[in-house]
Structures are given as structure tokens and as C-alpha cells.
């Protein structure tokens, strides 16, 4: 299963980004293979519609879960129709690595 995690930087030591649509990077983590893919977010500075565009980007990577600090108002119904789970995790100090560790410890 693939999980998207919003990140503030390009490494796994970066912190979790507290926004979904305008986060700096998406870290796509595969729980089965342990593979990691880091995607820069092209919608980072978008004036509007960053959320839906980001949904499209992550959905094209076939993720089933998204971990972020906050999701905008337009996102929920979109993700519900795509059956992608949202996980709101408001811990600013946590790194992407620690989130991946939590996902692995199940």
C-alpha cells in the first residue's frame, strides 16, 4: 500500500508539512517494498485550486492514504469519492522518517 506524506523538504529528515495542497514536497512511501519517492509539489505557489490539483497528482500515484497536518475544504469530498484515506497529524516537530516508522510498526 502506498502512503503520501506531505513534507517541508526533500529528505526524510524534513518535517511534516502542515498544509496539504501547498506543501513543498510529497513523499510517497510504499509499505510493502519500503520504497520512497519524493515529488516536488507544482502547486506550491498556486493562487487557487492547489488542493484539487494536488489530489490529482497524488491519486495518479495510486496512494491509499495521505498524512498531512491539515486538509482544505474542497478536499474531503474529492478524496472520499476516490476512496483515499486522510490522516490529519498535527505534530509540527515530527519528521517524515518518524511518520514512516509509525506506519511500519503496525
Amino acid at each position: 500500500m502506498r502512503v503520501a506524506i506531505t513534507s517541508t523538504g526533500q529528505s526524510l529528515e524534513s518535517r511534516l508539512d502542515q498544509r496539504f495542497g501547498r506543501c513543498a514536497f510529497f513523499v510517497i512511501y510504499d509499505t510493502e517494498t519500503g520504497g520512497v519517492e519524493i515529488l516536488p509539489n507544482p502547486n506550491k505557489d498556486a493562487e487557487e485550486g492547489a488542493g484539487p490539483a494536488s489530489v490529482q497528482l497524488v491519486a495518479s500515484k495510486e496512494v491509499q492514504k495521505i498524512v498531512s497536518g491539515e486538509f482544505g475544504v474542497k478536499i474531503k469530498s474529492l478524496l472520499d469519492s476516490l476512496k483515499i484515506q486522510m490522516i490529519v497529524y498535527k505534530e509540527k516537530e515530527k519528521t517524515v522518517k518518524s511518520v514512516i516508522d509509525m506506519l511500519n510498526n503496525q
Binding site: 484515506q85 486522510m86 490522516i87 490529519v88 509509525m102 510498526n105
Partner: peptide
């Protein structure tokens, strides 16, 4: 446990464990 919020896309099914900390 880990203070996270999550939704359940499959309606009618109650989640058995936390998707983050398990």
C-alpha cells in the same frame, strides 16, 4: 494514542486500528 484524526472512506465499516500507530 498518537493524537491524529483520520477518516474512514469505506462507510459502514468501523476502523479496527489506527492507520498511523496501529
Amino acid at each position: 494514542g498518537c493524537n491524529c484524526l483520520f477518516n474512514q472512506p469505506d462507510k459502514g465499516v468501523t476502523p479496527e486500528k489506527c492507520p498511523l500507530c496501529g
